[in-house]
């Protein structure tokens, strides 16, 4: 896996007229993981989108080197296609090298995505993320909708990723079990 880097300096985010946070800085090296914690509406998802380069920060700079994978509440899977075909589209783009853990998704490949539950879609998105082979993982509420077993599997997935030298940012209001997980409370940076 290529060496990756993710650091933010003095980030601020404004949504509409409201300043969500300011003066936020952190740096992640390969193998490290960071949890963004805080109550709803504190700006966790906005920060994830800023880190992904999908949203411009109101102030501050972002330094990101390496391919980036994102999990959020939208699975980006075609609803009318069977799950296998929907995942095959992304697999064709990502050209996955190694076999990835399947999180029980193999049993669902023939079912159209629109009939899948929230948790099943989330599992499919995690499988796509694992196959993407990106060194930087941005996870926005990855445990939402997952049952207990799938949540453990998700935590293991992220732990393995970090052990292989990947880095991860997890935005979650729930506890996320991961060795060496650093915490960043977004509420500390509220204006």
């Amino acid at each position: 896996m290529e060496p990756a880097r993710l650091s933010a300096t003095d980030l601020a985010c404004r949504r509409g007229e409201r300043l969500l946070f300011r003066g936020l800085s952190f740096a992640l090296d390969p193998g490290q993981a960071l949890q963004l914690a805080g109550p709803n509406g504190v700006g966790k998802s906005s920060l994830i989108r800023i880190l992904a380069g999908l949203l411009r920060p109101f102030a501050g700079t972002l330094d990101r080197a390496g391919a980036t994978g994102l999990i959020d509440e939208r699975p980006a899977l075609d609803g009318d296609k069977p799950l296998g075909e929907a995942l095959a589209f992304w697999a064709a783009l990502d050209a996955p090298a190694a076999a990835a853990p399947n999180l029980g998704v193999d049993a669902l490949l023939d079912i159209p995505v629109r009939y899948l539950s929230t948790g099943q879609r989330k599992r499919a998105a995690l499988v796509r993320l694992a196959r993407q082979g990106a060194p930087i993982w941005l996870l926005d509420e990855p445990l939402n909708g997952l049952d207990v077993d799938a949540a453990r599997a998700c935590e293991t997935l992220v732990a393995d990723h970090c052990a292989r030298g990947g880095l991860a940012v997890v935005a979650s209001h729930q506890p996320f079990a991961l060795p060496g997980l650093r915490q960043l409370a977004l509420a500390d940076f509220a204006p």
Binding site: A52, A76, D94
Partner: peptide, 10 residues
């Protein structure tokens, strides 16, 4: 569905 976001990340 966020397809454009996922494509942009790639």
């Amino acid at each position: 569905r966020g397809t454009f976001d996922q494509l942009a990340l790639r």
